[in-house]
Nucleic acid binder design. Structure first.
Length: 429
RNA sequence: UCCUCGGUAGCUCAAUGGCAGAGCAAUCGGCUGUUAACCGAUAGGUUGUAGGUUCGAGUCCCACCCGAGGAGCCA
């Protein structure tokens, strides 16, 4: 039976065969300490000259970093080992040799590591990040599953821009043009009218020439959409989901967060209720802190950081000026200048992780707003049908996965949060 | 697209306009408990590219290429 390192505790005292990669090695005369990993965990294998043949001992001396090996040895308890065990080697084979592995144990620059992303993934740090990413995605799926949401897949090819302002990737579609989706939202609105509670989870694309630590051209988004929900319900859902994600990561990924040197106490604060402030109150905070953003403007990274500094957990800012938001955002009946929308800003300066709100269900207001923004109504006919045939109050939001991973792992840049990042100036490997 | 900084050994970085250097990796040797092990030795270079200034350029000037931060825009 195949034995994985993560299950090694079940084999104490037994002689086993293990296949793994050598990620580091230390030697001391008559001893070789082989640091092995198999993707599930890491363990040290000890080759003592007195326990093996001369051939095996000199082979152990020569194995190079990232070579694939097969060892036969006995599992022994060992207090100084992270996993609690090590292996006394009796036999050793090199299955595939590795020559001049480029990523050495010492430090490297960003560019070099990004060029070798396909190998960099093997490092323990990258493994920890991808493990947390996996947990976040699982938590999201479990969260919606527990609430009886339907997962509905949105298309990647779209004929139209769902928000006129951002740049889309254009591609040929037989004799026509198509765009890579920047959001599944409009399709989720249609799905919510069919299934009530829905969400999509998939890649989205933005051709913005943004060169910042928070931007990718291809990123993953979770977008729930719920019929008969208003802004209040929407904020309740967003808050509950983010709390669940953080608590799941804290429950399952302590070792990863420790390896990443994440300050866990900051994450332990992330419990409901989250503060909720209006755009007007956010502007007041900014002015008090010496930032002179005028009323009516959207917030940039600096503004988000200033506001988030005031709170020890994510903060929701709602009711932005209607003019800075997309056409489908519902107008606030209390104040026609505002939209019933919400952004959630992560603490510690990690920026906006959620954007959403209540959708405009009134077809005349929707048409008015589309005219204002100069949108081509012909591509939205199907969307307008949703308001013609049994329109209803509904709301939803989108959560950016990479920014969430970056926040929970305490990473400076989102490029490490996705296995193969796509950036404005990088499409390889 | 704009602003700022940078490009020297496989990697990370030094070098007042005056002999091209270190650590790690590689190779060879030493060490019975190492934890980015340690100690000794060897090898490794068209200083991003193309011009220019100078007795002399890695260093100064110009253009281009590439990279890193940041801005706008956004999740």
């Amino acid at each position: 039976m195949k034995i994985w390192i993560e299950d090694i505790k079940n084999y104490e005292g037994q002689k086993i065969t293990l296949k793994a990669w050598l990620y580091n090695k230390r030697s001391s005369g008559k001893l070789h300490f082989l640091q092995l990993r198999d993707g599930t965990a890491e363990i040290q294998a000890v080759v003592f000259k007195g326990n093996v043949s001369d051939e095996v001992f000199s082979l152990a001396d020569k194995i190079s970093q990232e070579s694939t090996v097969e060892i036969v040895g006995t599992v022994k308890k060992h207090d100084r080992s992270k996993i609690g065990y090590e292996i006394d080697v009796e036999d050793l084979k090199v299955i595939f040799n590795s020559v001049d592995y480029p990523i050495t144990p010492k430090e490297h620059g960003n560019h070099f590591l990004m060029e070798h992303r396909h190998l960099w993934l093997r490092s323990l740090r990258q493994k920890a990040i991808l493990t947390v990413r996996h947990r976040i995605i699982k938590a999201i799926r479990d969260f919606f599953d527990n609430k009886n949401f339907h997962l509905v897949d949105a298309p990647i090819f779209t004929p139209n821009a769902c928000e006129g302002t951002t740049n889309l990737f254009e591609t040929t579609y037989f004799d026509d043009k198509a765009y890579l989706t920047q959001s599944g939202q409009l399709y989720m609105e249609a799905a919510a009218m069919a299934l009530g509670k829905v969400y999509c989870f998939g890649p989205t694309f933005r051709a913005e020439k943004s060169k910042t630590r928070r931007h990718l051209t291809e990123f993953w988004m979770v977008e729930p959409e719920v019929a008969f929900f208003n802004l209040q319900d929407d904020m309740d859902l967003a808050e509950e989901m983010v709390e669940y994600i953080v608590q799941q990561v804290l429950e399952h990924n302590r070792p990863e967060l420790e390896l990443l040197e994440r300050d866990i106490s900051k994450l332990e604060n992330v419990k409901r209720p989250f503060p909720r402030i209006t755009y007007d109150e956010a502007i007041e905070i900014l002015h008090k802190k010496g930032n002179d953003t005028p009323w009516g403007e959207d917030f940039g990274g600096d503004e988000e950081t200033l506001i988030s500094e005031e709170f020890d957990r994510p903060v929701m800012i709602h009711r932005y000026p209607r003019d800075v938001k997309a056409f489908y955002m519902k107008q606030d009946p209390q104040n026609p200048k505002l939209a019933l929308c919400v952004d959630m800003i992560a603490p510690e300066g990690y920026g906006e992780i959620i954007g959403g709100g209540q959708r405009e269900e009134d077809i005349s207001k929707l048409l008015e707003k589309m005219d204002e923004q100069g949108l081509d109504k012909s591509v939205f006919e199907w969307y307008l049908d949703l308001r013609k045939y049994g329109s209803c109050e509904h709301a939803g939001f989108g959560l950016g996965i990479e920014r969430t991973v970056s926040w929970l792992c305490g990473l400076h840049h989102v490029r490490e949060t996705i296995p193969f990042p796509r950036l404005m100036d990088r499409i390889k490997p």
